[in-house]
């Protein structure tokens, strides 16, 4: 196995393993589940950028992308966490939250 081959494999594996997280984003019963999954995907995107940089042989450029992406990902997830922390029982949020478990129930049955 060459380094090139391993790099391609690692990138593909990262991408494929993001799919369960994407599933959690799509159906996660609460919005917090979705946010955790989004956070995971964001972190892994930064890693994926490093992998792509290795593949292209321009890692010195892609490292900057990865760092900036990790930073903005942190800001985003922190912002949403703080927002949800502030707005506890916002009236408009309740029906949305109620709807998702029901959907899941319907799918299970």
């Amino acid at each position: 196995m060459t380094v090139e081959g391993f790099t391609v494999f690692a990138g593909a594996a990262l991408f494929v393993l993001m799919l369960p997280a994407l599933y959690r984003v799509a159906v996660g019963p609460t919005s917090f589940d979705r946010l955790v999954a989004v956070n995971v995907i964001g972190t892994k995107t930064a890693v994926l950028l490093v992998v792509i940089g290795t593949l292209f042989g321009r890692l010195d450029m892609f490292v900057d992308f990865a760092l900036a992406y990790a930073l903005l990902n942190f800001v985003a997830s922190l912002a949403v966490a703080r927002y949800l922390n502030r707005t506890r029982s916002m009236p408009a949020k309740k029906p949305a939250k109620r709807r998702t478990p029901r959907k899941k129930k319907a799918r299970a049955s």
């Binding site: 917090f32 942190f74 966490a81």
Partner: peptide
Amino acid sequence: TSPTSTHALMRAGFEDGV
């Protein structure tokens, strides 16, 4: 950052009553 944002999310979820 990753543990920090996880912690913030966890706290938000806990205070939201999950």
